[in-house]
Amino acid sequence: MKEHIDQTIKLSPEILNHVREWKDKPGNLIMILHKVQEEYGYVPREAALKLTELLDIPLAKVYGVLTFYHLFKLKKPGKYPIQVCMGTACYLKGGEDIIRELENLLGIGVNQISEDGLFSIEAVRCIGCCGLAPVMTIGGEVFGKVKREQLAEILARFKE
């Protein structure tokens, strides 16, 4: 079999090592996609194509998996992705208001990126910090018991 891959992307040695480590383990695709996303923040099409070559699997399969799992992103997120927990506890304690206010402040909707490329908003499933509800994370940093009024100030910290 011969593949025709546009060589516009070079996967990093880390990814290639990871692929090598996982290549012969059955059911490896999701673990490999996690690694790609860890590096790029999303899974670029070129990287997915490259994987089809390395793993000898069809691209349609890769996309079938990528689009099934909500954790995988096909578009580049903001530099500081904002994840607002929409678990039940956070919802009851106003998670939705947090999203509305963020949308307001950033002028973007959920799953969109702010114009300066700094932020993107995501509503995520329970992140398991229900005691701190409502919870959000920005670039991995957790903010618990968030109040609507604090948001502008929190965002400002990341803008610097």
């Binding site: 691209l59 349609a60 996309y63």
Partner: peptide, 19 residues
């Protein structure tokens, strides 16, 4: 051939080529 697969999930699921 693998031209088609399911893409997305839930009510948004559809048949489509890769991406």
């Amino acid at each position: 051939v693998w031209a088609l697969n399911f893409v997305g999930r839930g009510v948004k699921i559809r048949i489509a080529p890769a991406g």
